[in-house]
Design a protein around this nucleic acid. Structure first.
Length: 308
DNA sequence: CTCCAGGGATGAT
DNA sequence: ATCATCCATGGA
């Protein structure tokens, strides 16, 4: 089954390579991956997005609807970018990240992957995600390849810490197993939590083993459509310190959180994703500039916060 | 508040 | 071929 979707202001490669989803593989000029249970080959040619899907039980919606929803083609990117603060760091990131969208991931898959992400770099997270899929997921075929669905919480709940460790999860195995069991037993209900406001959803997520503030914010942003959620990892922390607090020695974590929550506005999660991707791709913020000085920012909006 | 386990890829020497 | 570096959570 194949289809073509008109997708303006969308960059498939940037979207899949920006640290929000970890199982997509680039090949044959496109990308192989799964939208939940559906194996997909997606290829972008300008504003045309061609989709091929392998065999799968036909759901209620059309393939086109499922794909458009997953890649969030309905997000008004122009309007979102207009809502960002107008400072040099933000402008550079927006310029670099055109067409990058925050996708809508299945909740459990997203939560489980980000529990695995703790203290790991993107390359490692990819490996763990693939190992879990191959060991515990269901095979799906497309173009003669075998892809694997992400295992359900029920499947993982019946595995063991040892088996999960065999997927290179390290100490995360214990947390993932414990969380899978809470969900499989119904004690935690990810779908029902959709009804909660941000603060309460965050509390619920943080009550799960292996989920702290950062992971909770990633899950809220990438699986619960909370576009205001602002995950702070080391990359973003460096960007915030260098670009927005250059005069202050060491703002506390709490201070960074308050700042980012108000400064970046209602689509803060998008701002975060753009700053993150830009910093990672340009290696900005990983150290000092050649002359040993830290970069300065020039906007009044920023100075206001630097004095706080 | 501080300290630190944990482990495999990645980059530097 | 070794060595340092990256990384979030949770518990002491």
């Amino acid at each position: 089954m194949r289809d073509t979707i008109s997708a303006s202001d969308f960059d498939l490669g940037k979207t899949l390579n920006s640290g929000q989803v970890f199982h997509w593989v680039s090949d044959n000029g496109g990308w192989y991956g799964l939208l939940g249970d559906i194996p997909i080959f997606a290829k972008q040619d300008g504003e045309k997005l061609s989709i091929e899907a392998g065999a799968f039980p036909m759901p209620k919606s059309t393939l086109k609807e499922i794909v458009s929803r997953y890649f969030a083609l309905d997000h008004p990117l122009q309007k979102i970018c207009d809502s960002f603060p107008n400072d040099p760091a933000m402008k550079a990131a927006v310029d670099y990240c055109q067409g990058l969208r925050i996708i809508r991931q299945p909740k459990w898959e997203c939560l489980a992957t980000f529990i695995c992400s703790s203290m790991k770099q993107v390359a490692h997270i990819r490996q763990m995600s693939h190992a879990l899929r191959q060991r515990f997921g269901e095979p799906r075929a497309i173009h003669g390849r075998r892809l694997h669905t992400f295992p359900t919480a029920g499947i993982l709940a019946e595995s063991s810490e040892k088996e999960l460790r065999a997927c290179a999860l390290g100490y995360r195995a214990k947390n993932l197993l414990a969380t899978a069991r809470l969900i499989a037993s119904g004690e935690a209900d990810l779908e029902a939590w959709s009804d909660f406001a941000n603060a309460e959803l965050s509390l619920k997520l943080c009550s799960l083993p292996g989920v702290g503030a950062k992971v909770a914010n990633c899950v809220m942003l990438f699986a619960y459509e909370r576009l205001r959620a602002f995950p702070i990892d080391v990359w973003i922390e460096r960007v915030l310190r260098q670009q927005y607090f250059s005069r202050k020695r060491k703002p506390t974590t709490a201070r960074l959180r308050t700042f980012s929550a108000e400064y970046f506005g209602e689509h803060g999660g998008y701002a975060q994703q753009y700053l993150f991707h830009h910093a990672r791709m340009t290696k900005a913020g990983s150290g000092r500039s050649p002359n040993g000085h830290r970069s300065r920012t020039g906007s009044d909006a920023v100075r206001k916060y630097q004095s706080m």
